[in-house]
Amino acid sequence: MTTTILYTILSLSLLGTVAAIALYFVAQRFKVFEDPRIDIVEAELPAANCGGCGYAGCRNFAETLVKSVTFEGLYCPVGGNETMSRIAGILGREAVKQDPRVAVLRCNGTCENRPRTNRYDGAQSCTIASALYSGETGCQYGCHGFGDCVVVCNFDALHMDPVTGLPVVNDEKCTACGACVKACPRNLFELRKRWKGDKKIYVACMNEDKGGVAKKNCAVACIGCTKCFKVCPYEAIVMKNNLAFIDSDKCKLCRKCVTECPTNSIIEVGFPVRKPKVDEQTSESTVNI
């Protein structure tokens, strides 16, 4: 009995040693040279593997960074300026700074604002629905609400609001990786400049229809009236295809456009509640989502 156990232990140990030695030599023989800086840079990256930089994961991005001559066009939105400047320090290059950004949904077509005109009964995917037809409401530009964006978000920063039927961005968790921007078949997400206190002013609409059609299908549609365009002192607003767009890099958050918008399609978030004004028309202009 004891000899059996002894022989077993001995033979297995011997086998293990022989295998270990063989493996060591094989590993030496087939060693691939890799720039050691890649590992160091990769350690600095957030390891989210979200693809927000445009490369296939953090390792791939680290390889690109090490090989690159300048950091132009190379940016990790998740790590932000801090990470990029640290990597720049490691590699002895100049970091390209970018303003921190946050994803914003440019649609406010809640169940209340945008009446349903039909009922969708296919696979629950915005992309499939979008390829099939214009959507459950009269608006052919707005959110389907099947949550393709929620599925792709790696940071748990998106969830569907069951009341409005629209996705909600959690500003704290959003890293501006851009996955939702790519996933949305209607291109409703935009990465906008992140202000202190997550203040935001943006046109929550992508409807390019003429005013009458847009308004008929959604109570808070941009009707392309150009009032905001005219009132903006910073030339931050551009009009295109019956639709206003606020350039977040030029906007100074003066909020003039918000009061001006006749359909409340320009949304302000994160500002203190305004004192109710005497003028009834403007008193409802604060819409918080």
Partner: peptide
């Protein structure tokens, strides 16, 4: 129309 039509692929 009072009732909504169903749309599916």
């Amino acid at each position: 129309m009072s009732r909504l039509l169903t749309v599916s692929p």
